[in-house]
């Protein structure tokens, strides 16, 4: 697991950022399909609360970016990372991530100063949601380097997409529940969409990290690492399954902040461990 512990800042970044960004997918679903706009049309306070509490996932993503800074040897030059746009997958990832942050912050600031209309809310959050998914995919794609056979598969972006949807979903539910708005929209299409989102997310996450593990176990040179990572893989998958349960329960029962918070904690840990497994399986085609 040595490679993993050498990449703690990146493991932290990819965990916090994908989960934080993914919250906006659920928020977008809430605003678009949960008739939140309609059923809470008479609850502008709740909408305001949601807008305000959306800072939680935004801070999560911000914390992820700060973690990424720790990974850099010269973080003060971090903006140079934009130089490789188009050519460097890492630049592309940074660009999309920054775009997400900009949109999310615009949404939050405009809401804070009270200038956010219902239509603008839907548009901004939807754009943020799309960017979140793109961001998650780009994080994964950045690892698809031909000289790193254990990472050079679609499993990399699939797993991060999964974390984004399942984990982000839980954080989205957290925001909604903390604003006491979840029970108002826990009916109708929102419930179906969100449960599906969590299922898809969990599947993608498990297939993603499991698939990567399978690929690695077929590479002789990685056998030592593969063996060491096995218990961590099991732990991560078990955690993801539990997180899935904790994501669905609030949608079919009376939602509780405690369950959702627990789910957020579990998914944070499971995703983080999954990321450790990912980094632990690093191998090069050469030396």
């Amino acid at each position: 697991m040595e490679h993993a512990f050498a990449e703690l800042p990146l493991a932290t970044f990819s965990t916090l950022s994908s989960l934080g960004a993914g919250a906006f997918v659920v928020l977008a679903l809430a605003f678009l399909s949960g008739s939140l706009g309609d059923s809470l049309a008479g609850s502008p306070e709740k909408l305001k609360k949601i807008d305000r509490l959306a800072i939680i996932p935004i801070l999560l993503v911000g914390a992820g970016f700060i973690a990424a800074m720790f990974h850099l040897a010269t973080p003060q030059n971090a903006l140079n990372a934009l130089n490789g746009i188009g050519r460097s997958p890492l630049t592309n990832e940074v660009v999309v991530g920054l775009a997400f942050m900009v949109v999310a912050l615009v949404y939050w600031v405009v809401a804070l100063i009270g200038k956010l209309g219902a239509g603008a809310r839907k548009i901004l959050v939807s754009v943020a949601a799309v960017l979140a998914i793109a961001f998650a995919l780009f994080i994964g794609i950045a690892y698809m380097i031909p000289t790193i056979p254990t990472w050079n598969t679609l499993f990399a972006p699939i797993s991060i997409l999964g974390y984004c949807l399942l984990g982000g979903g839980l954080f989205g539910l957290l925001v909604l529940q903390a604003a006491d708005a979840l029970k108002d929209i826990s009916t109708g299409p929102f419930k179906a969409f969100t449960i599906s989102l969590s299922l898809i997310g969990a599947a993608a996450a498990i297939i993603g990290i499991g698939g990567q593990y399978l690929v690695a176990s077929g590479i002789e040179a990685a056998s030592h690492q593969v063996a060491a990572a096995w218990p961590w893989l099991i732990g991560s998958i078990a955690g993801l399954v539990l997180a899935l349960g904790l994501a669905i329960i609030p949608l079919i029962r009376k939602p509780s902040l405690g369950i959702i918070s627990l789910g957020c904690l579990v998914v944070l840990c499971s995703v983080f461990v999954g990321r450790l497994v990912f980094y632990a399986l690093y191998i090069t085609v050469g030396v």
């Binding site: 040595e2 490679h3 512990f5 050498a6 703690l8 800042p9 720790f70 990974h71 030592h224």
Partner: peptide, 16 residues
């Protein structure tokens, strides 16, 4: 103590 492992990982560990 890292045994047969690639030296690359051992010296990368620890970041800052």
């Amino acid at each position: 103590k890292e045994g047969m492992l690639s030296r690359r990982t051992v010296l990368k560990a620890g970041g800052a």
